[in-house]
Design a protein around this nucleic acid. Structure first.
Length: 987
DNA sequence: GCCTGGAGCGC
DNA sequence: GTCTAAACAGGCGCTCCAGGC
C-alpha cells in the first residue's frame, strides 16, 4: 500500500449513538482507487480503528469539492453543450411470454428551461414514433403514416431495426433528461433485454457512457447505471410518488386528476389486435400509434405539472447528493449527504456506510434480544421508540366552531428549542430492564449543536424566500420558483427527524429521535392542560395539534378565543409556535385519525375535509366512495336528524336497486390493493384477491411486482351464486371482465355487504334514528343477518344500566353541596323524591338550617363551580399504578406505554379519575333535577306530593337540569352511548 | 373468541 | 480496446380485516 502522509485532523468519531464518543487525533491516509479496499475492521499494534475505507469516489468528490447539487464542473476539457429533454415510450407486446417491443415514441424538447412554467404543449417539440409489424402492416399503412400530421411515423421492418433507429434518435438528441412512466422497472428493462438479445448497434447510447461489453442487467433500480450521464424522471418512482398525490399512480389516473384529461386505456392483451395485418384499413394501427404519441406527451405534461425537475433540483442543491437519486430514490440519502457535508466541513469523521446483510447496530440489537429474554423473538422488527401522542377523541357530531390549532413544524422546532444533537446529548444509560432511557436535553450553556444550527439555517432561508414572495412586483415565474424553493427547504427540515430513527441510516441515533418525540408528547399534553385551564374543551388532538371546541356560534368570537389561546401557548416557548390551522363549522369525529369536517374558508365559503375515513382508502371502490360522500354530506348538512336519516335511507334504497339493476358502470366497482411483495412470495396467495389477480397477470406476460397497485373486481363464482369458490379466486382484473363479454358477472351482493354497508355504518354510528340492520335493509340486504352482536351487546348493557338502582349507579358520585349565604351552613342536595331530606319546598329551595330562601341563580353558580371542579380533576390526568405494593401516583406519562414509571415496578397505570367517573358524576347531578324520574320513583301518597312540587317548581328544576345538561352534552361519552343515556332518561 | 400481522392511512 | 463489488430502505400511532389457534 502506498501511504501518503497528509495531515492531522482534529476529529470526532460519531457513532450514531447519541453524543460523539471520542474527540481525538486521527491520521489521514490517502491512496488511490486503483489500490484494493481495506477491510474496515483491521487493526494493528499501531492503530486500533480505521475509518472510511469504503467511501465511494462520488462521496469523496462531492464532499471535498463542496459540491451542493447540480452544477457545471470543469474537468480538464469541458464538453457541455447540448440541452434537451426527451421522452420515450414503449409499448410492449408478448409472444411466447417474452416481451418484445412493437412501438416506441420519442418526443423531444430542445433547450428547455426547467424553471419556465410554460406547459410543454405550448413549446416546440419533435415527435417520432418507430413501429414495426407483428406479421405485416395493414394495407396502406406506410402511405397513411407518411401523411401523419405533426408526428413523424417511421415504419420499421423488424424489432432490431426499430431499436437501432431509436438509439440513433437518442444519440442525436443526446437528452439530459429522460421522462417516463414506469420506465425504470418496465420499459427500460424490456429495452435492455431486447437490445442485448437482438445485438442492437451502439446499445450504450441509451446513456452517455460508452460501453461495448454488457454488464449484467440487474433488477429494478440497479439499471439506472445504463443511463449514466442522463437524468431519469420516472413518474412512478418512489421519489415521484412522494410528490404526486394519487392512489394508484397509473398514467390514466394521474392524467385525470392532474391534467384533467381523459386518457384511453388500452388493454395490453388487445395490443396484438391493433397490429392485425389482415384487416382492410390501417386506421386501428394509426390509432395505436397516436395513443403512443399522446402518452409521451402526457408523461412530459405531468412531469411539468408537478414540477418534478425544479423541485428535485432544489432538494438536491440543499442536500448535496446526486440529482438522479433525488429523482428516483427515497429520502434517506438526501439526509445522509446534507449531514456528511456539514460534518465534513467541521472536520468530523463520519460513520461509515454499512452495506451488506446487516448494519452493526441492527446486529447488535438482535444479539441483545437473544440474551435478555430467551423466548421473546421480535422477529424482523427491532426495538422501537414511542412516537406522537394521540388524544382519545370525543366522538360525535360537533356543531359549534372547532378551532384547529397546530404547532408549526413541531419536530424541527423541538430539535432547535432543546438543542438536540449528536454532539450535545449525553449517551444514554440502560436501566435494569434493559430498556433504553430517554436522554436529558443538554443544559442551556451547551453551545448550539450541528443539527439545530442546520435546521435553523433552513428555517431562516425559508423565511427569507417567503418574504421575497410577498413582493407585488414578482413575476409568476419568480413566484413559482420561490414557492418550489420554500417547499424544498421545508421538506428538508422536516425530514431530518425521520432519519434519526431510521436504523439503516449512517446517522442513526434512536435516543435523539426518542427524545424529540418525548418532548413532543410533553408539549402536547401541556397544551391541552393550558386549554383546560382556560375553560376550553379539547375535543381531539394528534401529535402536534389540538382541536378546541370554542363553544360559540359567532366566527368573530371563535377567532378571539383562538388568538388568546395562541398567545397563551406561544408565551411558554422560545421559538416553538402554535397557530390556527383552520376552523371547522361542523365536525364528525369518529375515531382517532378518522374524521370529517366542514371547514370555514376565508369569508363565507366552506369546504369539506375528510381524514382517514374509508372513502379515502384505495381498497374501497368508487361506488362505495360516492355513497359515503352522499351520506357524509347529509350528516354534515346541519339539517334536522330525522330529515337526514330519511334521506339516507331513501338514497340507500335507490343505490341497492341501481346496483342490482346493473345500472352502475364496471369502473365504479374496481378495488385497488398494493402488492407488498412479489406475487410468488406470498405464503397465503390463495386467500389474497390481489395476489391471485397478479399471478394471472404474470401468466399473461404482464408485469406485477412488489409495490404495484393491482386493480380487481369481485365476480360471481363460475358455478353460479352458490358455488363455494374462494373469495380470492373470484377477484378478476377489470380487463378480464370486459373481455369476458357477460360471462363474468359482478357480485353485487358482495359489494353491497362489504363495500357499501360497513363504511356507511361507521359514518352513521353516532347518528340517532338508524342502525346497522336498518341500513342493511335499505340496501336490500337481510336485516337479520346484520343485527350485530355489538348492537345486542349494547342493548344488554343498556338494560343493565337502566335496571340498576340509582343508589348503586351513583354510589361513587360526590353529592351536590349547597352552601347557604345566610347561615353559612352546608348541606347535600338530596333527591327531591326524598321529602324528608330534600331542601326543595313547594315555595322554592330553602336552607334546612335557617329556613332562608336559596336563590336559583346562586344554586346554579354553585352547581356549575362543582361541575367544573370535577372536569378540572379529570383533566389533571393523575395516573395510579395498579400494583398495590407500589401505589405510585403521578402525572408523568410513561415513555414505554402504560408501564409504571417507578423503577423496578412491573405494574400498569390507569387514570385515577376516568372519563366514566366524570360522566357518571354529571349524570348524577342531572338526576337530582329530573322531575319525571322523581314522580315515577315515588309511590303512594308521596307521589301526589312530589307531583305537585314538580309542577310548582318546574322552572327551577329545568334551569338546574339545563346547567348540568350543558356540560353533559360536551362529554364525549354521551355521544357514544346515546341509547344508554336515553334508557336512563325515560325510565 | 383471542391474538397476530399486513395494509393503508394520519401526523 | 478496459474500467472492482454491490447496489432497497424516513419515523411511530391507529383502525380494520383476515387468518390461525
Amino acid at each position: 500500500m502506498k501511504d501518503i502522509y497528509e495531515d492531522f485532523d482534529r476529529a470526532v468519531c460519531l457513532r450514531g449513538e447519541g453524543r460523539a464518543k471520542k474527540e481525538t487525533q486521527w491520521l489521514k491516509v490517502v491512496y488511490g482507487f486503483n489500490e484494493p479496499q481495506l477491510p474496515n475492521n483491521v487493526s494493528s499494534p499501531n492503530f486500533s480503528r480505521i475509518f472510511a475505507t469504503n467511501t465511494t469516489a462520488f462521496e469523496l468528490l462531492v464532499l471535498k469539492r463542496k459540491i451542493m447539487g447540480p452544477c457545471w464542473l470543469q474537468i480538464k476539457n469541458p464538453q457541455v453543450d447540448n440541452k434537451g429533454v426527451s421522452c420515450t415510450r414503449t409499448i410492449v407486446n408478448h409472444r411466447e411470454n417474452i416481451r418484445e417491443i412493437v412501438c416506441a415514441t420519442a418526443r423531444i424538447w430542445s433547450n428547455i428551461d426547467i424553471d419556465d412554467p410554460t406547459p410543454p404543449e405550448a413549446l416546440p417539440c419533435t415527435v417520432r414514433t418507430f413501429v414495426r409489424p407483428l406479421d405485416r402492416f395493414p394495407p396502406n399503412f406506410e402511405v397513411r403514416a407518411s401523411g401523419n400530421g405533426k408526428g413523424l411515423i417511421s415504419p420499421m421492418k423488424n424489432e432490431r431495426m426499430l431499436l437501432n433507429s431509436l438509439l440513433v434518435t437518442i444519440h442525436r438528441a443526446d437528452p439530459d433528461v429522460i421522462v417516463g412512466h414506469e420506465f425504470l422497472g418496465v420499459s427500460l428493462d424490456v429495452l435492455l433485454h431486447r437490445m442485448r438479445e437482438l445485438k442492437a448497434d451502439h446499445w450504450s447510447r441509451i446513456g452517455r457512457f460508452r460501453r461495448s461489453r454488457w454488464p449484467p442487467i440487474g433488477r429494478q433500480g440497479t439499471n439506472l447505471r445504463f443511463l449514466s450521464g442522463r437524468l431519469l424522471g420516472d413518474l412512478a418512482s418512489d421519489g415521484a410518488k412522494d410528490m404526486i398525490t394519487s392512489t394508484t399512480w397509473s398514467l390514466t389516473e394521474m392524467c385525470k386528476t392532474h391534467l384533467k384529461s381523459d386518457r384511453q386505456d388500452i388493454d395490453p392483451d388487445d395490443t396484438a389486435s391493433y397490429f392485425d395485418g389482415g384487416v382492410s384499413s390501417p386506421e386501428r394501427l394509426l390509432t395505436f400509434v397516436r395513443h403512443c404519441e399522446l402518452d409521451a406527451h402526457y408523461q412530459m405534461a405531468l412531469a411539468a405539472k408537478v414540477q418534478i425537475l425544479p423541485l428535485t433540483r432544489q432538494l438536491t442543491n440543499l442536500a448535496g447528493n446526486s440529482w438522479n437519486k433525488t429523482l428516483n430514490g427515497g429520502r434517506a440519502e438526501r439526509n445522509e449527504y446534507i449531514l456528511l457535508h456539514e460534518f465534513h466541513r467541521l472536520k468530523y469523521v463520519c460513520p461509515d456506510k454499512l452495506w451488506g446483510k446487516k448494519s452493526a447496530v441492527a446486529a447488535k440489537a438482535e444479539n441483545e434480544d437473544g440474551d435478555a429474554e430467551g423466548g421473546k423473538t421480535t422477529k424482523g422488527k427491532r426495538d422501537k421508540y414511542k412516537g406522537g401522542l394521540v388524544f382519545e377523541p370525543k366522538r360525535g357530531l360537533w356543531d359549534k366552531y372547532i378551532l384547529v390549532m397546530d404547532f408549526n413544524s413541531l419536530y424541527p422546532s423541538i430539535i432547535q428549542e432543546y438543542n438536540i444533537d449528536f454532539t450535545t446529548v449525553e449517551s444514554v444509560e440502560v436501566d435494569a430492564d434493559g430498556e433504553e432511557k430517554i436522554p436529558e436535553p443538554p443544559s442551556s450553556e451547551v453551545p448550539q449543536g450541528v443539527l439545530p444550527r442546520l435546521i435553523a439555517t433552513l428555517v431562516n432561508r425559508r423565511r427569507q424566500v417567503k418574504s421575497l414572495m410577498k413582493d407585488k412586483k414578482a413575476t409568476p415565474a419568480q413566484l413559482l420558483q420561490w414557492d418550489i424553493k420554500q417547499m424544498a427547504l421545508k421538506l428538508t427540515a422536516n425530514s431530518m427527524y425521520g432519519c434519526l430513527g431510521f436504523e439503516y441510516s449512517r446517522f442513526y441515533a434512536r435516543p435523539l429521535a426518542a427524545l424529540t418525540t418525548f418532548k413532543g408528547r410533553e408539549i402536547l399534553t401541556h397544551t391541552r392542560e393550558l386549554a383546560e385551564s382556560m375553560q376550553l374543551d379539547v375535543v381531539y388532538g394528534d401529535t402536534d395539534s389540538v382541536f378546541v371546541n370554542s363553544n360559540v356560534t359567532e366566527l368573530a368570537e371563535a377567532l378571539k378565543i383562538s388568538a388568546e389561546f395562541k398567545k397563551a401557548v406561544n408565551d411558554r416557548y422560545k421559538l416553538l409556535e402554535i397557530d390556527l390551522d383552520g376552523i371547522f363549522q361542523r365536525l364528525l369525529l369518529l375515531q382517532k385519525k378518522k374524521y370529517a369536517a366542514v371547514k370555514v374558508e376565508d369569508g363565507s365559503r366552506t369546504s369539506t375535509e375528510v381524514k382517514g375515513l374509508d372513502m379515502k382508502r384505495r381498497e374501497y371502490c368508487v361506488l362505495s366512495k360516492t355513497v359515503s360522500q352522499y351520506v357524509l354530506e347529509q350528516i354534515l348538512s346541519g339539517e334536522a336528524t330525522e330529515a337526514v336519516v330519511e334521506r339516507i335511507h331513501e338514497y340507500l334504497t335507490t343505490i341497492g336497486e341501481d346496483v342490482r339493476g346493473g345500472k352502475i358502470k364496471l369502473d365504479e366497482f374496481i378495488i385497488f390493493k398494493r402488492l407488498g411483495k412479489n406475487p410468488e412470495d406470498y405464503p397465503d396467495a390463495k386467500s389474497q384477491p390481489h395476489v391471485q389477480v397478479a399471478l394471472r397477470m404474470k401468466a399473461r406476460g404482464l408485469t406485477a411486482r412488489a409495490g404495484d397497485v393491482i386493480p380487481y373486481v369481485f365476480c360471481i363464482g363460475e358455478g353460479g351464486e352458490t358455488a363455494k369458490t374462494a373469495q380470492a379466486d373470484r377477484a378478476k382484473h377489470p380487463d378480464e371482465v370486459r373481455r369476458s363479454s357477460d360471462e363474468l358477472k359482478i357480485d353485487y351482493e358482495h359489494y353491497l355487504a362489504h363495500q357499501i354497508l360497513p363504511p356507511i355504518e361507521r359514518l352513521c354510528e353516532p347518528i340517532e334514528g338508524t342502525d346497522r340492520a336498518r341500513l342493511a335493509e335499505c340496501l336490500g340486504l337481510d336485516p337479520n343477518r346484520y343485527r350485530s352482536a355489538a348492537e345486542s351487546e349494547e342493548r344488554y348493557f343498556g338494560t343493565l344500566d337502566s335496571l340498576m338502582s340509582d343508589a348503586e349507579r351513583f354510589k361513587d358520585a360526590e353529592p351536590f353541596l349547597v352552601r347557604c349565604r345566610s347561615c353559612r351552613g352546608q348541606v347535600a342536595f338530596a333527591p327531591i323524591s326524598d321529602r324528608e331530606s330534600s331542601l326543595l319546598l313547594p315555595s322554592g329551595p330553602a336552607c334546612p338550617a335557617c329556613q332562608s330562601a336559596l336563590g336559583t341563580a346562586s344554586l346554579q353558580v354553585q352547581l356549575e363551580t362543582q361541575i367544573r371542579g370535577h372536569i378540572a380533576k379529570y383533566y389533571e390526568s393523575w395516573t395510579v399504578c395498579d400494583d398495590p405494593t407500589c401505589g405510585n401516583r403521578t402525572r408523568m406519562m410513561g415513555v414505554y406505554g402504560r408501564r409504571c414509571l417507578r423503577q423496578g415496578c412491573r405494574g400498569t397505570v390507569a387514570f385515577e379519575y376516568s372519563d366514566a367517573t366524570l360522566y357518571n358524576q354529571l349524570r348524577f347531578y342531572l338526576s337530582l333535577f329530573d322531575a319525571e324520574k322523581a314522580v315515577k320513583t315515588s309511590t303512594g301518597s308521596k307521589a301526589d306530593e312530589v307531583k305537585a312540587l314538580v309542577d310548582l317548581q318546574g322552572d327551577f328544576l329545568r334551569t338546574m337540569a339545563a346547567t348540568a345538561e350543558k356540560y353533559l352534552n360536551q362529554s364525549g361519552r354521551r355521544w357514544v352511548q346515546l341509547s344508554t343515556l336515553f334508557s336512563f332518561m325515560k325510565m
